Computed example of a mutant assay.
Amino acid sequence: MRTTQDPSTADCVFCAIAADGAPAHRVLADDAVVAFLDARPLFPGHVLVVPRRHVVTLTELPEADVGPFFARVRRIAGAVERGMGAAGSFVAANNKVSQSVPHFHVHVVPRNRKDGLRGFFWPRTRYASEAEAEGVAERVRAALADGG
């Protein structure tokens, strides 16, 4: 929860929204999350879901909070699709890089065919070989074995 003594949250706009200290068009607020319309939406109905607890990244979100948080994300995704009459949704989060506000958040964006978004927002590539792909997979498996 946001406190004025905590320097990590003192200037966090999402903590301010969660504490009713900043305006936002809320769609859900409970003990785990606050969800509100993005001020600069990709499409109408673009919602941000933020944990009430100030954490910068997904990896800082306490394990006990992960399930409740993503249960709300799931609920918001369904509501955005139904409420906006969308064919589907794009659900995504940045973790450090490209994070415009340093408070973990998930974007829920209503999607329809031919809406102008093309897959992901960056160019996709391929691994040069099966050996390169296996080497990358091994690096991730090793990191998981070391404590992840």
Rank of each mutant, 00 (worst) to 15 (best):
Q99H: 10
M84K: 11
V101D: 10
V97T: 12
V109Q: 00
Q99T: 02
G78I: 04
I17D: 03
D65A: 06
V27C: 13
C12M: 00
H54F: 15
G45V: 02
G116L: 10
A19T: 08
V97M: 04
R82I: 11
P68R: 00
G45R: 02
A142T: 10
G21K: 12
E130S: 12
R111N: 01
D20W: 13
A79I: 09
G78R: 05
A145W: 03
R74V: 07
H25C: 15
D31E: 13
G67Y: 04
V13M: 12
F36P: 00
R74H: 09
V80R: 02
N95D: 11
A79K: 03
P41E: 12
E60S: 14
G78W: 03
R82E: 15
V27G: 07
P41F: 06
D6I: 07
V55Y: 05
A92M: 09
P68A: 05
Q99S: 02
R126F: 12
V66T: 05
A87Q: 14
V50P: 03
R126M: 09
T57D: 06
R72Q: 12
D146R: 11
P44S: 08
P110R: 08
A10F: 07
A128L: 13
L48N: 04
A133E: 06
F90N: 08
L42I: 05
V106N: 02
V50S: 11
P123S: 00
A77I: 00
E138F: 09
Q5T: 08
F120G: 13
G147L: 08
V109N: 03
A131Y: 06
D115P: 14
P23T: 15
G135E: 04
A22G: 09
S98M: 02
D115K: 06
A77L: 00
I76C: 01
G119C: 10
K114P: 13
D146M: 11
H107R: 12
I76V: 05
K114Q: 15
E138A: 13
